[in-house]
Computed example of a mutant assay.
Amino acid sequence: MKRLNKYISDTGYCSRREADALIEKGLVRINGELPELGTKVLDTDVVSVSGKTIKPVAENKSDRVYIAYNKPVGITCTTERKIKGNIIEAIGYKQRIFPIGRLDKPSEGLILLTNDGDIVNKILRAENAHDKLYRVTVNKPITERFINKMSSGVPILNTVTLPCEVKQIGKCGFEIILQQGLNRQIRRMCEHLGYEVTRLVRKRIMHIDLRGIKPGQYRHLTEQEMMIMNQALTHSSKTFSGQS
Results as ranks from 00 to 15, higher is better:
residue 71 K to M: 01
residue 79 T to S: 11
residue 36 E to V: 14
residue 34 L to C: 03
residue 52 K to P: 07
residue 51 G to L: 08
residue 43 D to P: 08
residue 28 V to C: 07
residue 69 Y to G: 01
residue 37 L to Y: 10
residue 64 R to Q: 10
residue 34 L to R: 13
residue 61 K to Q: 02
residue 55 K to H: 08
residue 100 I to Y: 13
residue 79 T to N: 03
residue 84 K to G: 06
residue 87 I to C: 11
residue 58 A to V: 06
residue 98 F to D: 02
residue 101 G to N: 07
residue 37 L to V: 12
residue 34 L to H: 07
residue 37 L to A: 14
residue 32 G to M: 09
residue 35 P to C: 12
residue 35 P to G: 06
residue 98 F to N: 02
residue 89 E to H: 14
residue 80 E to W: 01
residue 71 K to S: 04
residue 82 K to L: 14
residue 50 S to N: 15
residue 58 A to N: 08
residue 46 V to A: 07
residue 106 P to N: 05
residue 58 A to T: 05
residue 30 I to N: 04
residue 36 E to W: 06
residue 78 T to D: 03
residue 98 F to C: 04
residue 75 I to Q: 03
residue 103 L to Q: 01
residue 96 R to A: 05
residue 49 V to Y: 02
residue 62 S to A: 10
residue 45 D to E: 08
residue 69 Y to H: 00
residue 56 P to G: 08
residue 102 R to V: 08
residue 95 Q to T: 03
residue 102 R to M: 04
residue 34 L to Y: 11
residue 82 K to Q: 15
residue 65 V to G: 00
residue 30 I to C: 04
residue 86 N to R: 00
residue 63 D to I: 11
residue 55 K to A: 09
residue 86 N to G: 04
residue 86 N to I: 10
residue 86 N to P: 01
residue 86 N to L: 03
residue 37 L to R: 14
residue 98 F to Y: 08
residue 70 N to V: 04
residue 91 I to Q: 10
residue 106 P to S: 10
residue 40 K to N: 06
residue 84 K to W: 05
residue 99 P to Q: 11
residue 40 K to Y: 01
residue 32 G to A: 11
residue 29 R to M: 12
residue 100 I to M: 14
residue 73 V to P: 02
residue 92 G to R: 03
residue 92 G to H: 01
residue 50 S to A: 14
residue 29 R to A: 09
